[in-house]
């Protein structure tokens, strides 16, 4: 679906007033990856890392400085309009709807822009109305919508024409937990049932945990991770946490294979690697336990470690 090879992009930035000095900024440096049809992957990176620039090159907004890009078999910068029929994009912080018109009018206009046949449009719209609960504000002018409502409208706008490939930039931003869940479920559904490929750029790690099986991480223009989440956790966050509640407060437990990280009254946090069963037995032998929990590494922490290590 997507093939990227040696992709690079440089910008010439001019600073200063009259005679402006030129700096060359390398936004994206020699990136290569492949995305197969039907994947749902996340694209992560700190701000300014080159995420947006990459997406823009994949969608045809920007022309690369070097390298090869193929999206759905087309060169985005050369065959923009052809490609546009097959893809959908939604940039969470930007507006693509008609500001002064009722939401439904935006959909109608987009329908004509994409030339969607009437029956397909109706079916598609009906589905979105149900999943994203659009009915209460379908006739409201976009400028009067709350952020959450507008985001739902923008999502619909991006997908009305049933694209094969979706680029979503911060799609759940501003949504409440319930709405976020619905959107995530919906993305999973269209991905699994309709085979829509989804490239998700996000800072919301909840999205990543729940949706993505594969992650691309970019920093300073270079791709520093391309792989599954499980491997990511293994590589950067193989340690888990055993939280024990003792009968009464005690000094930090000395147990082989674990390191006490925090003590708060009768509760202690132990960091460990590997299987939990043995360790639990050893801890139980050392102290009187009331309760215990095991937590997985926080993906936020993992991501932070990646950013820091690069």
């Amino acid at each position: 679906m997507i093939e990227v090879e040696g992709l690079s992009k440089q910008f010439v930035v001019r600073r200063g007033r009259f005679r402006r000095e030129r700096h060359i900024v390398e936004a994206v440096r020699d990136i290569s990856f492949r995305v197969e049809r039907g994947e749902l992957l996340g694209y992560l990176g700190p701000n300014g890392a080159g995420k947006s620039t990459t997406i823009k090159m994949l969608t045809g907004i920007l022309v690369p400085s070097a390298g090869r890009v193929q999206v759905a078999g087309l060169d985005p910068s050369r065959r923009r309009i052809e490609l546009a029929r097959k893809i959908g994009a939604m940039f969470g912080q930007r507006i693509q709807l008609w500001w002064d018109l009722p939401l439904i009018d935006s959909f109608e206009l987009l329908r004509h822009i994409y030339r969607v046949p009437a029956d397909r449009y109706r079916a598609s719209l009906a589905r979105f109305r149900e999943v994203l609960e659009l009915d209460p504000f379908l006739s409201t002018p976009v400028r009067q919508l709350s952020l959450g409502q507008r985001i739902r409208g923008e999502l619909t706008a991006a997908m009305l024409h049933e694209p094969e490939l979706l680029f979503l930039d911060e799609p759940t931003i501003g949504l409440d937990v319930v709405a976020k869940q619905r959107v995530r479920d919906f993305l999973v559904e269209i991905n699994r049932e309709n085979g829509v490929t989804v490239l998700l750029t996000t800072h919301d790690l909840g999205d990543i945990e729940r949706l993505c099986s594969r992650l691309l991480v970019i920093d300073h223009g270079k791709l520093i991770w391309d792989g599954g989440i499980a491997e990511l956790k293994e590589r950067y966050g193989p340690e888990r946490m055993l939280i024990v509640d003792l009968e009464e407060p005690a000094p930090p437990l000395q147990v082989e294979g674990a390191r006490v990280e925090k003590v708060d009254g009768p509760r202690q946090w132990l960091r460990f690697q590997g299987p939990a069963a043995e360790l639990t037995a050893r801890v139980a032998a050392t102290a009187r336990l009331v309760d215990l929990q095991i937590t997985e590494p926080d993906i936020e922490e993992i991501v932070r470690r990646i950013y820091q290590s690069s």
């Binding site: 994009a89 930007r94 507006i95 822009i113």
Partner: peptide
């Protein structure tokens, strides 16, 4: 504001879209 970019992701000419 970055609101022009999305027009490039639609299957129409940009000037036409801006006018519309």
């Amino acid at each position: 504001d970055g609101n022009f970019d999305i027009l490039l992701v639609r299957p129409r000419g940009t000037l036409y879209q801006v006018i519309c």
